[in-house]
Nucleic acid binder design. Structure first.
Length: 151
DNA sequence: GCCAACGTTGGC
DNA sequence: GCCAACGTTGGC
């Protein structure tokens, strides 16, 4: 899951109550569908920092809620306000995300060097999804091989 | 700031 | 249903 650290970084999430943040602002149907249809509480999440000086994986998190309507779509003062959505039929859904571990940053350039990750959706040319699935093999490689356990 | 790639919109 | 125009994403 991608977040711009200027908006919500791993540190911001760790500082939040229960180290949990609502994943507001997703306004892409495919990304929404992944949250709405494919996520289960406890699923692992790679917390990715995008649109910043050092894009890359910055932490490990987990899905902390089932999907529910993104409140910012109804907030006229929010940059994510969507006048075409309505309370009875919310267009945008989100999940809560709980950060469990801040990791040393794994830069995008490092991810691209890994033979095991050539098929990652995140790394596909032109990919613009902010929420996308990770395979078990990719997850294991990243969390067990790339992320050095401290100590 | 640039620009490739993509998603959405809307006329037809 | 097609597709041009437009707006956005996001790395560089």
């Amino acid at each position: 899951m991608k977040s711009e650290p200027d908006e919500v970084s791993v540190d911001d999430a760790l500082a939040a109550s229960l180290q949990t943040v609502a994943w507001t602002g997703v306004r892409n149907y495919q990304a929404r569908n992944f949250m709405r249809d494919s996520m289960r509480i406890g699923d692992g999440v790679l917390f990715y920092h995008s649109s910043c000086p050092q894009p890359g994986i910055a932490g490990i998190a987990e899905v902390a809620s089932t999907a529910y309507p993104d409140p910012t779509q109804f907030d006229k003062k929010s940059p994510y306000y969507d006048p075409q959505s309505d309370q009875e039929h919310p267009r945008w859904m989100l999940v809560d995300v709980k950060v469990t571990q801040k990791t040393p940053l794994i830069p995008l350039s490092t991810l691209r060097e890994q033979e095991e990750l050539v098929d990652m959706i995140l790394l596909r040319k032109g990919n613009r999804l902010s929420v996308m699935p990770v395979t078990t093999a990719e997850w294991n490689f990243i969390t067990k091989k790339l992320i050095k356990k401290n100590g």
